[in-house]
Amino acid sequence: MIKVSNLRKSFKDNLVLKDISFDVNEGDVVAIIGPSGSGKSTLLRCLNFLEKPDAGYIEIGGESVDVKRVNRAAVNKLRMQTSMVFQHYNLFKNKTVLENVSHALVVTKKMDRAHAKQKGRDLLNQVGILEKENHYPISLSGGQQQRVGIARALAVNPYAILFDEPTSSLDPEWVGEVLRVISKIAKNNKTMLIVTHEMNFAREIADKVIFMADGVIVEQGTPQEVFDNPKQERTKKFLENFNRNNDIKEDSFYPAGYVK
């Protein structure tokens, strides 16, 4: 399971995460929603130490660290428990699509090349982009790049996958294909944490929804609890805003799911 307690992070004087605590059961899909600047992405990035938290306790798949007393070896072990899908894909530009997926297997898991490539092809097939295996990322559409990003994250077979706004920088026409791939993986009982602005998607695939605002978890529960019967004023306001924007989307220039 994933257990986070009293996680705290600030950038200079700005306290971005204020004693965040939550648990995730193995195989659960957790959607983290909330307004921009609420600390959702920072929370995700603290879980694999892309940002170093200031204090707190993190346990993922049996590896645990106390942030205050942490060494490099423990951080590396913790990092091995997760992999990340990024908003801007962050594919390796000097590697082909297949190499993007198989590279880490060869380098970190010491898998032989043929085996790694085979596994890479399997995953590319799963995300429906095998025909581009020998292309470089620059020649792919955003949706295709993000699907490669997902295959790359799956390749190292971590305990959990962290999705950091995986569709936020996509053209609206590519959002659907990426969401479909994520739902497909969710059905395989992979533990996943997804920061997203796609509320309908969150409601559909999440086992648990966490609503964050101003660096704290305001409310968490099942999608029904959070979306249909929110208890906190802050949550209600956020969802109202979201629904209002969604209702007028016909003549709005904001893409669906955009939260003003």
């Binding site: 892309l50 590396n76 990092r79 997760t82 992999s83 990024f86 594919l91 898991k109 190292v156």
Partner: peptide, 13 residues
């Protein structure tokens, strides 16, 4: 920087 972060996140030193 994103590429370095991606490398870190899949376990590369």
């Amino acid at each position: 920087k994103g590429q370095a972060e991606a490398a870190t996140s899949v376990g590369l030193s």
